[in-house]
Design a protein around this nucleic acid. Structure first.
Length: 478
RNA sequence: GCUCCCAUCGUCUAGCCUGGCCUAGGACACCGCCUUUUCACGGCGGCAACAGGGGUUCGAAUCCCCUUGGGAGUACCA
């Protein structure tokens, strides 16, 4: 059987990082087995679904490089792949179920249903107790439907049955049928519900493996009932561990940045995002923690999913991002940085030569490209010193005043916009040879006097990058 | 409440299926040392976990049961 997997987002918001991981795993499974990765849009909730979100989610997926083989606009013979375009199909299958006596029209009022719900909550049950399930009322129901009355359709659950799946992640899982009552498969507005159309589509779209979040595990029993009713073979399931926040609750908006587009805006590397997300619920057979998704094509393995929830840790994501920054070629990094640094930043007023030197200086210090402008502001553009304890300490050394004086004099003599690397070296040479200052007092003295800090990028590169005016201002403020 | 799922360092995890190689390995974070005439990078090292209790077994992180804890679902959302 050929492998066909799908990612089935609801276009009700931006792409969530949990969704991105699910999509990635599906994509990877398809790549591993030479199968097809399908996108199906589940837009049956007409109030919340927006076409705009579909577009945005697809864009985010494209940014991650998770391209689908089949989906809306890329149809094959089993399409269409947008549920709103398949409504007639769901109606057809609903009718079949009703005909066969496996589903029934339900005319219960909202009040009656509410009462049922309350009862069930009290009793710890989930049974439908309305009268419409009974054969005796079917003729009446049929008449009312024929007369054009709107109604919902419920699936008739046989509470004596039990179902089980052989989940790729969780192995054998058993569900008693009583855990659910007769559930709605078709709403009174003519739209199908998730548990129904999802099954119809997975079957008709020839889906071989369903990889989805663990929050769907309990839904599986309802879906199994539908497969059984139609005598269809269910696909292979894999219920992936959920992603949780620091409070160990399912990751959601209140945990902060959970939308993929936010990471795109912050110039995270898609490769890093994929890398990190892959490791949240899956482990590399060689325990590698840095890799590209292409390197996973052959090595990805559906037997290495982890069952327990994974906490989303942005610090590790950042570290992963830093690893991928170090992996980039110089040219790619250069254009990436030019793209990511705000257009109005000082950086863009400098020569290409300056930019290249600056970038190679700062690259190894960062995990995020957005740290570059920040570092430039802090170490190149800051004009006055903050009298920190560290700075006071350096200034209190007996060797420092001599360095300060020498630098001050040299700075007066300098012409041009920047100090050349040669000049800077000669300053240091002078202090070393004539003033006999070396090692830490030498370097830290220069660093303190010229940058006001006790740490930062390599001085010999940093100082020639700093506009001479700024160096003068700094030194004069001392 | 009911149903289902989960349980190894603070975090991501390896090991579990197919008990012994586990004195429990790796990674992030943190700390220390080395290197660098400064800072960082890097290298080396340290801290730190099998939730608890019962079994089974010569032997249990690994298999079974219970307890506890956590999570998900319980919609005419998906």
């Amino acid at each position: 059987m050929s492998v066909r997997v799908r990612f089935a987002p609801s276009p009700t918001g931006y792409l969530h990082i949990g969704g991105a991981r699910t999509a990635l795993y599906n994509y990877l499974i398809a790549k591993k087995h030479g199968g097809k990765f399908i996108i199906r849009i589940e837009d049956t909730d007409e109030e919340r679904s927006k076409r705009e979100y579909e577009k945005l989610q697809l864009e985010d997926l494209a940014w991650l490089g998770i391209e689908h083989d089949i989906g809306p606009g890329k149809e094959d013979e089993f399409g269409p792949y947008r549920q709103s375009e398949r409504l007639h199909i769901y109606q057809e299958y609903t009718d079949k179920l009703v005909e066969a006596g496996l589903a029934f029209y339900d005319f219960c009022t909202d009040e009656e249903i509410e009462k049922m719900r309350e009862m069930n909550e009290k009793e710890g049950t989930s049974a439908y107790t309305g009268k419409w399930r009974e054969e005796a009322h079917f003729a009446e129901a049929k008449q009312r439907v024929a007369a054009g009355e709107k109604t919902s359709v419920r699936f008739k659950v046989d509470p004596t049955k039990a179902y089980e799946i052989d989940d790729l992640v969780r192995k054998n899982v058993k569900f008693p049928a009583q855990m659910v009552g007769d559930f709605v498969i078709m709403r009174s507005n003519g739209k199908p519900t998730y548990n129904f159309c999802n099954v119809i589509d997975d079957h008709l779209h020839k889906i071989s493996h369903v990889l989805r979040g663990e929050e769907h595990l309990n839904n599986t029993v309802r879906q199994l009932m539908i497969y059984e009713a139609f005598n269809w073979e269910a696909p292979k399931f894999a219920h992936l561990s959920i992603m949780i926040g620091e409070d160990r609750q399912k990751l959601s908006k209140r945990h902060g940045a959970t939308s993929v587009h936010l990471y795109k805006e912050e110039s995270y590397l898609p490769a890093a995002m994929n890398n990190y997300l892959t490791l949240l619920g899956w482990s590399h057979p060689e325990e590698l923690s840095v890799f590209t998704k292409e390197e996973l094509f052959s090595v990805f393995d559906e037997n290495r999913f982890n069952k327990s929830p994974a906490m989303y840790d942005i610090e590790k994501l950042k570290w992963t991002n830093g690893q991928h920054i170090k992996l980039m070629s110089e040219d790619v990094f250069f254009s990436y940085a030019n793209e990511a640094i705000a257009k109005d930043h000082f950086y863009h007023t400098q020569s290409d030569e300056w930019k290249k030197v600056c970038l190679s200086l700062l690259r190894e210090k960062i995990n995020m490209i957005t740290e570059i402008p920040k570092l430039i502001d802090e170490s190149i553009l800051n004009e006055s010193f903050v009298q920190t304890d560290e700075l006071k300490d350096i200034l209190s050394w007996e060797t420092t005043p001599a360095i300060l004086n020498h630098v001050k004099e040299e700075l007066k003599k300098e012409e041009g916009t920047h100090v050349s690397a040669e000049s800077f070296n000669s300053w240091m040479d002078f202090c070393k040879k004539e003033l006999k200052i070396k090692g830490k007092p030498l370097f830290m003295g220069f660093r303190g006097v010229l940058t006001g800090q006790n740490h930062g990028p390599d001085l010999k590169v940093l100082i020639p990058l700093t506009p001479i005016e700024i160096l003068r201002k700094r030194i004069n403020s001392l």
